[in-house]
């Protein structure tokens, strides 16, 4: 059963280290809150996650002034899309 993982802390907290080691093909990661800092600037998302869909919460990136510099592998998603994703995947696993 597929999982949508949410990551809500900045890279300093290394939530993605454990999360990324548990992902399977067909899973997705949605970066929210300070987790969106993974999505702007260089080399923060491990190459091992290349087969996983990546999303970032648009409202949180707009708030932080990072929307324009969102990396190309990450798709912006608003709350309405967050809701859609949480239905599309079989469960939501929140990392906080």
């Amino acid at each position: 059963m597929s999982c949508l993982h949410t990551i809500n802390r900045s890279p300093r907290f290394a939530q993605l280290d454990s999360c990324s080691s548990l992902l399977l093909p067909g899973d997705a990661v949605l970066f929210i809150e300070d987790g969106t800092y993974y999505c702007s600037g260089p080399h923060k998302i491990p190459a091992t996650m290349s087969g996983v869909e990546l999303y970032a919460l648009q409202e949180d990136m707009i708030a932080r002034g990072t929307e324009a510099t969102c990396v190309k592998e990450v798709t912006l998603a608003n709350y309405s899309k967050f809701v859609e994703l949480s239905c599309e995947f079989d469960k939501v696993i929140s990392w906080f």
Binding site: D34, D60, Y79, S80, F82, V83, E84
Partner: peptide
């Protein structure tokens, strides 16, 4: 920020008819 996120998500759920 998490309590705010939860509120926004809940509102979005209701808006989508869930």
């Amino acid at each position: 920020e998490a309590a705010h996120s939860a509120l926004q998500f809940t509102a979005a759920l209701l808006k989508a008819g869930h």
